[in-house]
Amino acid sequence: MAKSIDVSDLNIYYGNFLAVEGVNMTIKARQVTAFIGPSGCGKSTVLRTLNRMHEVIPGARVEGKVVVDGQSLYDPTVDPVAVRRQIGMVFQRPNPFPTMSIYDNVLAGNKLNAKRMKRAEADDIVESSLKGANLWNEVKDRLDRPGMGLSGGQQQRLCIARAIAVRPQVLLMDEPCSALDPISTAAIEDLIHELKSEYTIVIVTHNMQQAARVSDETGFFNLKATGEPGHLVEFNPTKKMFSNPDNEATEAYISGRFG
């Protein structure tokens, strides 16, 4: 239930503007890969190209290849909707569906696709997903209450539960903790550790300690200069990255001497 992703010579454009240039990397299955780098260097953009979510933005297009277990994502015959069913995503700000209860939010991926299932089966999915997201104990008595009534950290875990309820192969997380307090952040980091055994996880973060804590591999993105496209500076195992990086710029960024 987990897949690896090969990215080769990836260029991403917004209209005529080249946003990210020449990304090559291999994201391993059942590992956590973190993207770090300054704001605006294209981390989130690259993350979004991994499940074709960038196509939601008008004018966005890519050149190059993204291959998931031998299947090229940008093949003309590939259906972006099918891609997103296999590669789930959690966003920076929690976005539970406001018209739905907690129960329905977890099942949203199934219900919105009009998948028929028995009540018992649905209950199982809800319970296992909420347990998987470390939220079950907090909400098991109020599953019929609106998802918007939860706290920010709970909402974010609800969104993670919603993402894993459709059994994706890969989970993309775009700064999932940046709107959360340290306790909720710790809960989500623990969760990432647990999910690693079943999912391939890619996480964008601004928090270098977080990258060091949760990830196995790290990619450092940077801008060549202001107005130039972003690029991947270094991609290495996290341990090496934070102790003995290959690139000077990486060391400067990680140690806080940026520039």
Binding site: N113, A114, R162
Partner: peptide, 25 residues
């Protein structure tokens, strides 16, 4: 847009996102 993206990320087609998420909201 976050709600729309949330639905797309679950593999929900656009027309279902509109009829089941955007319009109810």
């Amino acid at each position: 847009n976050e709600l729309r993206e949330g639905a797309y990320a679950l593999g929900v087609p656009k027309w279902r996102t509109i009829t089941k998420v955007v319009i109810p909201t």
